[in-house]
Each structure stands twice: as structure tokens, then as C-alpha cells.
Design a protein around this nucleic acid. Structure first.
Lengths: 202, 202
DNA sequence: CAATTATGAATGAACAAGCATTCATTGCAA
DNA sequence: TTGCAATGAATGCTTGTTCATTCATAATTG
């Protein structure tokens, strides 16, 4: 939807607290009243925008998992990779996530949408990691611990990509996560060559 | 300062976009005009609030480093621990960080404060990790990679603590980070017993 | 086939509510 | 009396929302 895309751009460009009805409709090239016509209220537009981004994320990892094939190793690598996918990890989308996370403590609506996304993803994530631990005989590992740490690392990378995109590229961020995997699951992921790629990708 | 504390509580309770001058002054138990008297403008109050939290964080890790003694192993453990310290990792403070991170893409003022905090911290963090790599003869490790990953994991944990404080305690979050360290620096950090503590700390 | 009507999306001026900011006034301590 | 921190009513501006009106297209009619 044209208006949701305009909202995403406005949040990225003006911040959530300076995202007004008139700015969004101007961004969309439409008139003032158009948002209330289609979304009833501003609150609703914002909730729908968050839902849109969350749904896009869900689709991305579902598809990635399907494309990865039957091997658990590939499935886990695919789940990590999707976090740094061009669409999902777009600067504007990152800004949207952080904008809503910042408000989520005060707004149950936002928090619930975020928590639901998290639950769905983590359930699947946990299952893949549990399977890899079993298949690989990594008896010393705890699935909950690994999945909590790995997904936290991914989210922290998003913050770095949001705040200092100059210092970090999506590729480098992914490489750092893969490096973590290579230490946790040494039999399944190659230890990358020393040094992180410092070429600055757009 | 009384007004900055009130601002922190308001951001945590109402969100940044519903944090108004009247709400903050009411929260502080003072009158309408008081903020402009002491801080000139709302923008300035918010910037000072962010600076306050950033400064508090800087003091915390500086002190932690001083208290840790001369051993590099202890220094790194102290830097990880401080992220989950009761004061620094307080729910309201987390809400403040995420609120400003969410706006930072649109507001250079906020972004600069965040980036400055990041630079100072990461320089020190990197130095400690570099030293441990040298001392321990971990030739396969790249300091930049390890420090990027570890600090990202810490920030991701903050998000989990903000969104789902029920699922995760500060202690558990720290344990997950320490588990990462035990895989990266096996000679220096004990591998914790399997399973993460799931007791739900307040 | 042309003329007319019906339909629903889009408009933008108007409105009340809430906002940040100002400043003449107050209260209090020195 | 003096000096200064604090007040809170008043101000002008911006916000979200409404709704009578416009516009473009589809359906109906003679």
C-alpha cells in the first residue's frame, strides 16, 4: 500500500514523533483526509505499518527456510542470512523497527505485534538449532542459550547498521554472526579467514 | 536533576512521542514553565536527558574497569557485566536508549551523542580484547570481529530485556554473553554448566 | 450510441484539542 | 528591601479528524 510505504519513509526521514498525517499524505502525493478514509486513524496507520514490516520479515524467513533445502546446517545459515537480506535489512525498515521498539514499552499494541513476531521466529529458530545440536552431537550446548545469543547478536547488528552504517556493511555483519556459528558449531561451519571485510558496501 | 529523571520516567511510561512538557513537569511535581526556565526548550531537555544516560553509562564502565584490577580477563568480564548492571540496565533506561535510537536516523543531534558514546566505549572494548588475544595467543581471532559481535550481542540482549522482560532476566542475559566468551576464549573463561537459568528475576 | 445517472474514491477547508513557549506575577530566603 | 527561583494563565501554532464537495469512471437509460 502506497500510504504504508510513505509512512515507512516518513518514520525513517522525520522520526516517529515528527511523522504527522500531513507529512505522510504529502509524502504519498495525496491529500490530507486520505489516511482517515483508508485507515480510520493515525494510530491504526502506524499499527498497520508495523504489521506490514513484521509480516514482510515473517515471509522472508519462511521463504528462506523453504529455499534452504533439507539440511539443518543450510537452514540455520539461511535464517542468519535473511536478517541481512537487502529488503529486510533496508535502512528505512531498520529505522521503523527501532522507532516502534522505542515506543513499545508504553504501547501495548506495538509491544504485542513485536512479541508475536518474536515468538513465531524464535520457535522456528530454536527448533533448527535443537536439531543441529542433536545431529552434530554437540552435547555441551544448550539450544535456548545459543538461540538467545545468536538472535540478540543479529538485533544488535541491526542497531550498528542503523547508527553507524559507515562502519559496518550488511555483509560484514553477517560474517560476524557466521564467525559466532563457526565457534559454536565447529564441525558444521568453516572458520572464516582472519580479519573482517572492511570494504564499505552501500 | 529532578527534571531529567522525570523525563526518563515519562519516556518509559508514555513513549517519546507522548512525552510532553506538561507531562514531564507534572511527573516532576512542578509547574508548566519550569522546563523552559532551566533547559530553554524541549529539544534541549531531551538532548540533555540522552547525554545524562550516556554519561551514566560511561561512568559505569570506567568504574568497572578500574575495579576489575590488572588482569585482562577480569577487565573483559567486568565490561560485559556492566551492561547488565542494575542501574545501567534498568527498564526505564533501556526504554530511553531505544526511544532515542529510534529517532536517531532523523535527528543528527541524537545520532551524534549515540555515536560518541559508541566510539569511546568501543575503543576501550577493542583494546581489552586485543590485549587478551595477544596474551592468550589466540592467533585465529580478529579483535574487530569479536568486539563487534560481543557488543552487538549485548545490545540485542537489551532489546529482549525491553520487549520480553518476563522471558529473560539480567542474570540470564549476562550468562549468555559469558557463554559466548567461553567459546571464543576457552582458556580464560570456564564453560558454564549446560542450560540457562530460567528463574525469573525481577 | 449518446446522454444521464449512480457510485465511490479523493479532496481540502474548517474545527476543536493539545502543543511548546512566554512573561507578568508570586513566594521566599537573604 | 532585594534577588531570584518558581508559577500558571495566556498566546499562537500545529495536530488529528471531520465532512460537504469535487472528480472520474461505470452503469443505466431512452
Amino acid at each position: 500500500m502506497q500510504l504504508i510505504q510513505a509512512t515507512i519513509r516518513s518514520i525513517a526521514g522525520n522520526g516517529l514523533s515528527d511523522t504527522t498525517m500531513s507529512r505522510v499524505s504529502k509524502e504519498a502525493g495525496l491529500s490530507q483526509g486520505i489516511i482517515n478514509l483508508h485507515f480510520q486513524s493515525k494510530d491504526n496507520l502506524l499499527a498497520e505499518t508495523l504489521k506490514f514490516v513484521a509480516e514482510e520479515y515473517r515471509c522472508a524467513w519462511t521463504q528462506a527456510l523453504a529455499d534452504a533445502g533439507p539440511e539443518t546446517v543450510d537452514q540455520l545459515a539461511a535464517l542468519v542470512a535473511v536478517d541481512f537480506d537487502k529488503t529486510v535489512c533496508h535502512p528505512d525498515k531498520l529505522a521503523v523497527w527501532f522507532a516502534f521498539w522505542g515506543e513499545s514499552k508504553a504501547r501495548p499494541t506495538y509491544r504485542n505485534i513485536c512479541a508475536a513476531r518474536d515468538r513465531a521466529y524464535r520457535t522456528r529458530f530454536n527448533a533448527v538449532i535443537t536439531k543441529l545440536i542433536e545431529e552434530g552431537g554437540y552435547t555441551a550446548l544448550d539450544a535456548e542459550n545459543v538461540s538467545t545469543g545468536l538472535s540478540a547478536m543479529g538485533e544488535g547488528m541491526w542497531l550498528d547498521l542503523l547508527i553507524s552504517p559507515r562502519r559496518l556493511s550488511r555483509e560484514t555483519a553477517k560474517a560476524v554472526c557466521m564467525n559466532y556459528l563457526s565457534y559454536i558449531f565447529p564441525k558444521h561451519y568453516p572458520r572464516p579467514k582472519v580479519g573482517i571485510d572492511r570494504t564499505n558496501a552501500a
